[in-house]
């Protein structure tokens, strides 16, 4: 369920870009990624129960998504930094799950192809923005820095998946992010990847302030018509 919540919430954030992207090609790309993630969310949530009940009728404290994926879109650089951090992690995780025999293996085998595309898209844009103009360089660095403190949470072992190599995920993730960031003429952010200054861990249902507003918008209509089918 935490993985389903990650995909659901990040998909929702990307959906907010519809009609507002910097170029038409990105309208298509961002919607495409959002759809992939929503597809993953539906499979993952269905493994845990009824997808719509879980998406629309849980309260903020019951969601288990990462704080990273609930962060507001910000400018295009923030959206790309969030995608880079998350898709690089998701690719590692799904590669591992795809070769395993958990109930997540079939999903992971399909999703790993999608996620490789998401990671490539985020990487290409990190390179363009980092090694583009002075302004885009500054914005991309600012975005990487701003979201860095939410990255540590990704590597906390998940219940039921404790046997996965979480420490290795962190090492490989750091290596890959470092390579991309350096190629983009940017620097790896300094400072802790998590800490006492974050409200808590999304995995425990402790979220950041913008999340409640996201849920209010997402759930409003469904909650206004109890028991209705759509």
């Amino acid at each position: 369920m935490p993985l389903g919540d990650d995909a659901l919430i990040l998909s929702h954030r990307l959906g907010e870009w519809a009609g507002q992207a910097p170029v038409l090609e990105e309208e298509v790309a961002l919607a495409n990624i959002a759809l992939d993630l929503l597809g993953q969310a539906r499979v993952l949530l269905s493994l845990a129960g009824d997808e719509d009940e879980l998406a629309y009728l849980r309260e903020e404290r019951e969601f288990r998504n990462l704080q990273l994926v609930e962060q507001p879109n910000g400018d295009f650089a923030h959206t790309i930094a969030r995608q880079l951090y998350f898709s690089t992690f998701q690719e590692l995780l799904f590669e591992q799950l795809a070769s395993g025999d958990t109930e997540l293996a079939p999903l992971a085998r399909k999703a790993v192809k999608e996620v490789a595309y998401h990671r490539d898209h985020a990487t290409q844009w990190t390179l363009r923005l980092g090694d583009g103009t002075d302004e885009s360089h500054t914005r991309m660095q600012r975005a990487l820095d701003a979201l860095w403190r939410f990255t540590g949470e990704m590597f906390e072992p998940l219940a039921g998946l404790e046997t996965l190599p979480w420490a290795t995920f962190h090492d490989v993730w750091t290596t890959r992010i470092t390579a991309t960031v350096e190629q983009a003429t940017l620097r790896l952010p300094e400072g802790p990847q998590r800490g006492a200054w974050t409200a808590g861990a999304g995995r425990q249902g402790l979220h950041t302030e913008p999340f409640g507003r996201l849920l209010a918008e997402m759930q409003h209509l469904h909650r206004s018509h109890p028991g209705a089918t759509w």
């Binding site: 907010e16 519809a18 949530l45």
Partner: peptide
């Protein structure tokens, strides 16, 4: 895209949300 994108974040079921997102994506295409 705008009048429909207006409802993406409020679609009342995940199935409808996926359909609507795909549609708005088609329009950009």
């Amino acid at each position: 895209m705008q009048p429909e994108a207006n409802w993406i974040t409020r679609a009342p079921s995940l199935r409808r949300k996926a359909i609507l997102m795909a549609k708005v994506q088609d329009e950009a295409g």
